[in-house]
Design a protein around this nucleic acid. Structure first.
Lengths: 143, 143
DNA sequence: TATTAGTCTTTATAAAATATCATAAATGAA
DNA sequence: TTCATTTATGATATTTTATAAAGACTAATA
């Protein structure tokens, strides 16, 4: 079970940072980990409610906020969805995604050049970047 | 009046393409042009309703869809807003934005390197890009 | 003028996200 | 340990953003 391992890593990271990976947050983390690809908050809520019928939208959104702050989860702005991060040890890396509009698959990529190019342009305008949203839409290899 | 000139350019572009810049669309275009920076669909609706009280959400969204298709307007995914495009002569250029989280200003930039870096990464994954969302958040020069 | 493709109006609803306030649990200091 | 503080949760309601569906209208053109 891959997801259990991921959870352990998350627990370790939280312990180090003094962050509290509570029961609800853990549950949401697991659901994200067991889910293939990206998922919307309300679909996640459906899954959560099968375990805890009293869960509400705010329950999910609060858990997702926490997980995103820890870098375990990314929000995909252009499709209002959330994705478990592959490599969440390093918390605030730039996020770059390839989103297939045909099959819905999402691949996270890592391009230093891309990051540098964006920062260079920002610098030129005297702009300081805190957070970047880079989401390419199109057709994946399989489609 | 800058916005009148922009409207003329838009009319010219539409004529060339056989697209119909109707009264509603023209009105929404003008409101966008007169507005400084980005604006949300419902704020835009408020403005539109001062001119045409019968306007509804669908009115605005449809007009925005049209304008976006023509490349006159960009949707900003990460803040659910819309922005008039500076250089809408060339219709489907990549859109790259610097969004100040302090004052709300949005600057559109043009980096060929950025575009190339993104395409290079996509190619490497066998991914074909149709549309890209590049939105950097942070602090602008003035803030 | 009949056709047709596109556009608009209206009503309703869906989807996504947050506000508020009361309660509970964990943490840290006295 | 006890108290105070912070942090998290639960519950209800609402806000914000966006689309669906159905029918009427309009412009272009054949």
């Amino acid at each position: 079970m891959e997801s259990k391992k991921l959870l352990q890593l998350a627990h370790a990271a939280c312990k180090e940072r003094g962050a509290r990976l509570t029961a609800v947050r853990e549950q949401v983390f697991l659901l994200m980990a067991e889910n293939e690809g990206a998922i919307g908050a309300y679909d996640l809520l459906d899954k959560l409610q099968k375990i805890d019928p009293s869960a509400k939208p705010a329950t999910v959104y609060r858990a997702l906020d926490f997980l995103a702050k820890q870098g375990f989860v990314h929000k995909i702005e252009s499709i209002n969805s959330f994705l478990l991060c592959d490599h969440f040890s390093d918390c605030h890396h730039p996020v770059q995604l390839l989103i297939c509009d045909n099959c819905g698959s999402v691949e996270e990529i890592q391009s230093n050049n891309l990051d540098l190019a964006l920062r260079a342009m920002a610098d030129a305008s005297g702009f300081t970047i805190n957070h970047q949203v880079v989401e390419a839409h199109g057709k994946c290899q399989n489609c």
